[in-house]
């Protein structure tokens, strides 16, 4: 079976730190920044466990601010 690897980018200035992507992620890839905040004072989301990402788009689908882009590759 081909292995799927994914990665996401979060537009950190647009992110409002609502945590919905973190809840929606089936592989616990995402977390909110524990200390750092963006210009508007929100703890933005980031890939805390990038190896786990499978590029399923769940985070991007539930993101109310459309700040997540998803990338996916198939490894043989």
């Amino acid at each position: 079976m081909a292995k799927i690897k994914g990665a996401v980018t979060v537009n950190k200035e647009r992110c409002k730190g609502c945590n919905l992507c973190v809840v929606a992620c089936p592989t616990d890839t995402l977390s909110l920044q524990p200390l750092e905040v963006n210009d508007r004072g929100y703890h933005f989301a980031y890939m805390s466990n990038p190896d786990a990402c499978i590029g399923c788009c769940s985070c991007a689908l539930v993101c109310p601010d459309a700040c997540i882009e998803v990338y996916r590759v198939k490894l043989d």
Partner: peptide, 25 residues
């Protein structure tokens, strides 16, 4: 490799909605 991007028809403005509001989705 991009499979999901911000829709072209959404403007670059940040919405005034509260964090996590269903309106954005």
């Amino acid at each position: 490799n991009r499979v999901y991007a911000r829709p072209r028809l959404l403007t670059e403005v940040n919405t005034h909605y509260c964090p996590g509001c269903s309106h954005g989705v």
